[in-house]
Design a protein around this nucleic acid. Structure first.
Lengths: 147, 147
DNA sequence: ATTGCTTCCGTAGTGAGGTACGGGTCTAAG
DNA sequence: CTTAGACCCGTACCTCACTACGGAAGCAAT
């Protein structure tokens, strides 16, 4: 082994990871990736570690972690902080579950409204609109606070 | 009957609907609500119609419509466009269902990772971190494109 | 009449996660 | 040698739905 590190420019790195060059630079500004030293006069080069870091970031994002949270995860990188990492994971899991059940409520309400519209009616009015007008049955006591 | 319209200032209107004054003004700027004429020298007043409009907007938001989409819904207000409204509702329903199933994938992946962390391991490494490092099993072929 | 809360209005800032621009420098191909 | 295409870097801009700011003017109670 001892294969020579396969070296990339930022463009190649970005393409390989499926993100834009600007995105990589943005992660560097956010402190999620380091900027390699640039050799006299020119272009920085990146290795598989940089690529792995990018994969880590995207995987974490896919799980719903924000870039700030990913920064936190990255400080736990050495494996000695498994408990903290699990804690973060559990919090995220909870928030994902909340989102799911909220969306399921929305699904039920919306489905019902659409059904009512489809099943022919007096024509003079629209059940969906009517419901919107008086607040949609089912905002199950968490009125307001949409965001 | 013929009860005199119960008249409100913007502050009362906003509080009654559970939103901020600035939010009402914002909706006016967005064209979702009209600004009543102001009587010589001063303060505009709002009636139940304005309140109903605010309820309509919040109910629609709760269902996942964006303010732009709500503007569109509002043009269909007269009940004669039930088909168009239903169409919009169906599109939204589809997108809600997509979100749900995406989140359910995330839930499964995250749950598995957290479980692995909890069930004691060699200590030298963290299963969650390890998975993040090599991309999380289960990004089920929709790699990248998190947003 | 003075205090003190609202309203009015335009403009600007927030947060998240980027994307775009523009001017300058490098490098590789022809 | 020239030219096309990366790269470097800072700064500005984008979307979405608000939220804040600041000064002037109105209104209600003391």
């Amino acid at each position: 082994m001892l294969k020579k590190r396969n070296v990339m420019t930022i463009g190649t790195l970005a393409k390989t990871a499926g993100v834009g060059v600007e995105t990589v630079r943005y992660y560097q500004r956010r402190g999620l990736m380091s900027e390699p030293e640039k050799p006299y006069g020119g272009i920085r080069h990146y290795d598989e570690q940089a690529l792995a870091r990018l994969h880590f970031i995207r995987a974490s994002q896919w799980l719903g972690f924000s870039l700030d949270e990913i920064g936190e995860l990255l400080t736990l990188q050495d494996g000695a902080h498994c408990d903290e990492a699990r804690e973060l994971g559990e919090q995220k899991l909870t928030s994902v579950r909340r989102k799911i059940s909220r969306l399921q409520q929305v699904e039920r309400a919306l489905n019902e409204l659409v059904q009512k519209c489809s099943s022919g009616h007096g024509d003079v009015y629209c059940p969906l609109m009517a419901s919107l007008n008086d607040g949609v049955e089912d905002a199950t006591t968490d009125k307001h606070k949409v965001r």
